[in-house]
């Protein structure tokens, strides 16, 4: 069982950069752990800290004005490697939703498999949200999974999600539970396809 996700009202952290790749989210040298926990400390490591581990001024995670459980990021978020550590790091840091106008495929799957909701919005919505949050860090967004919408002030946008994945998130199910229930069918298939 994973944590359930239903609806979230939160402030957000703006990161208006395109093509944020998994090496930025969690650099390879921090992938040496053999558990899923603790990756949040190194989320955006090289943007967040100087070489001497001092927090880098000007990076949004070091800016006390911004916080919340929603990350707002530029187009093509999560491109690059398949490392699920990227999703773990974002989740472990405390985010539950990433909003972007475009996600890389593998990242999207990894996020969904870990109770982190990727919300795809229009370019216009993203621009408006980034601007609103940047100007007023107290701005809250509402993300409602049940009804599949995200709301900024009066501006509401519907987002897409696979029905099955939605059910999983709402109930905290994971894919293995489902696949294990198909064991006999899969076994037959395995034997027939040497």
């Amino acid at each position: 069982m994973k944590e359930k996700f239903t609806t979230l009202t939160s402030t957000a952290v703006p990161l208006p950069i395109e093509n944020i790749d998994t090496d930025q989210i969690i650099p390879a040298r921090f992938l040496k752990a053999t558990t899923r926990e603790g990756f949040g400390d190194n989320l955006f490591r090289d943007w967040r800290y100087e070489g001497n581990d001092a927090p880098r001024a000007g990076f949004v995670l070091n800016d006390a004005r911004y916080g919340g459980r929603i990350l707002l990021a530029g187009k093509n978020f999560g491109c690059g490697s398949s490392r699920e550590h990227a999703a773990w790091a974002i989740y472990d840091y405390g985010f539950r939703v990433v909003v972007s106008s475009f996600f890389a495929d593998i990242f999207k799957n990894n996020a969904l498999n870990n109770g982190l909701l990727p919300v795809v919005v229009s370019d216009g919505f993203l621009r408006a949200a980034l601007q609103a949050v940047t100007e007023n860090p107290a701005t809250e967004l509402v993300v409602n999974l049940e009804q599949q919408f995200i709301q900024l002030g009066a501006h509401r946008e519907v987002f897409d999600i696979n029905t099955y994945k939605k059910t999983c998130l709402l109930n905290g199910y994971d894919d293995i539970d489902y696949l294990l229930s198909l064991h006999d069918e899969i076994r037959k298939f395995d034997v027939a396809h040497p």
Binding site: S81, S82, E84, I106, N109, N113, N162, D174, D175
Partner: peptide
């Protein structure tokens, strides 16, 4: 194609992945 660790677990456990 590449997969994440949750999917590695799926393949080890069931020899299948869920993919659109």
């Amino acid at each position: 194609f590449g997969i994440g660790t949750s999917e590695v677990e799926q393949v080890l456990a069931t020899q299948c992945v869920l993919q659109s």
